[in-house]
C-alpha cells in the first residue's frame, strides 16, 4: 500500500479542467515532489460503446458468456449468466445488468457477463467506464480485463487487470487489482479506495486505468489512487506482452464477496453509461 501517493495526483478527462486542477495541485502540494508520478494521458479514442441503442447489446461488439463456467467461473460464483433481457438490456442510453434471485438451470441466481474478446483487444492505453454499482452482501460487480490468450493458457498466466471490483457489502470501497503468476486470487496485487462520505451504488462514477509499459495507473472520477508497477508484483510482470480485452459483469457470491444473505435485496442492477478506450 502506498498511502502517501493516494490523492496526490489527478487524472483529467478534459484538458481545460486539467489546467484548473494543476493550479489546485500547485497550491495544495507545492514542492512536495517526492510523490510526483508520471501520468500518461491517452487521448486517441479506439473503442467507444455509449449504449445508445435500446435492446440487447450488439453481438458485433460484445460476446455473451453463458452459464456457470467451471466451478462458478473459477470463483464458486452462484449465478447463471444468460443473455436474456431480464439479465441484460440497454434502456435510455444505459446498459443494465440485472442480478436476479431465481431458480434457473440449477443455479439460485441469474445475471450477465459480456466481453470484447476477439472483437476489441488492445495493449496499453486508457480504459474507462461510467458505472453505477449494485449493492448488498454477496454482490460482485466488475469492470475488468483479461489477456487475449486467456483460452490458450491457464489463468492467471494470461494476466488480469481489474479496473473496478466492489463487494456489495462495502458500497464505498473500490478495489483495483492485477493478477498474474504468483500473485492471483487472494494474493492479487490490490488497492482499495474509500469514497469517503459517498457510495458507488447511489450515483455514477468513472472508473479507469491508464496502462503503459511497466505500469498500470488506477483512477476513479478525478482521483488517481493507485499505481502498480513490476516492483509491486510478487511474480513475473506479464502486462507488456499482449493485448487485453474488456469484461463487464455482475457476479453473485463467490470467493471475493462471500455469499449473499438475508439483507441482500434482489433484483440488483449495475448501470453502465459508457465504455471507452484510448491509446
Amino acid at each position: 500500500m502506498k498511502k502517501g501517493k493516494q490523492l496526490k495526483l489527478k487524472v483529467q478527462l478534459l484538458s481545460y479542467k486539467m489546467v484548473l486542477l494543476t493550479i489546485v495541485l500547485l497550491i495544495g502540494y507545492g514542492c512536495d515532489t517526492d510523490d510526483t508520478q508520471t501520468v500518461v494521458t491517452f487521448t486517441e479514442l479506439t473503442f467507444q460503446e455509449e449504449f445508445d441503442t435500446d435492446g440487447t447489446p450488439s453481438t458485433a461488439t460484445w460476446n455473451y458468456d453463458i452459464g456457470t463456467g467451471l466451478d462458478g467461473w473459477g470463483n464458486q460464483e452462484l449465478q447463471y449468466y444468460t443473455d436474456r433481457p431480464e439479465n441484460i438490456t440497454v434502456n435510455n442510453g444505459v446498459l443494465i445488468i440485472t442480478a436476479n434471485q431465481e431458480d434457473f438451470n440449477g443455479a439460485g441466481y441469474t445475471s450477465a457477463r459480456i466481453t470484447t474478446k476477439d472483437i476489441f483487444e488492445q495493449q496499453y492505453g486508457r480504459f474507462e467506464a461510467r458505472i453505477r454499482a449494485p449493492f448488498g452482501p454477496g454482490l460482485w460487480p466488475a469492470f475488468w480485463m483479461l489477456g487475449a490468450n486467456s483460452d490458450e493458457v491457464v489463468w492467471p498466466a494470461c494476466g488480469e487487470i481489474d479496473i473496478m471490483e466492489i463487494r456489495g457489502q462495502n458500497p464505498s470501497i473500490l478495489v483495483g487489482s492485477v493478477h498474474g503468476p504468483g500473485y492471483s486470487a487472494g494474493e492479487a496485487i490490490s488497492k482499495d479506495y474509500d469514497l469517503v462520505n459517498d457510495r458507488f451504488d447511489t450515483g455514477f462514477h468513472v472508473f479507469g486505468i491508464e496502462w503503459g509499459p511497466k505500469y498500470v495507473n488506477y483512477y476513479v472520477d478525478d482521483v488517481l489512487y493507485s499505481q502498480i508497477t513490476p516492483e509491486d508484483v510478487t511474480g513475473e510482470w506479464i502486462f507488456d506482452d499482449q493485448p487485453f480485452y474488456i469484461i463487464l459483469n455482475v457476479a453473485v457470491g463467490g470467493t471475493f464477496p462471500g455469499p449473499p444473505n438475508a439483507d441482500t435485496r434482489f433484483p440488483q442492477t449495475m448501470l453502465v453509461d459508457y465504455v471507452r478506450a484510448y491509446k
Binding site: 458500497p171 464505498s172 469517503v196 462520505n197 459517498d198 457510495r199 451504488d201 447511489t202 435485496r265
Partner: peptide, 10 residues
C-alpha cells in the same frame, strides 16, 4: 451527522 453513506431507503 451527514454521513453520505446512508442509502437505498426501503
Amino acid at each position: 451527522e451527514n454521513l453520505g453513506t446512508v442509502a437505498q431507503p426501503q
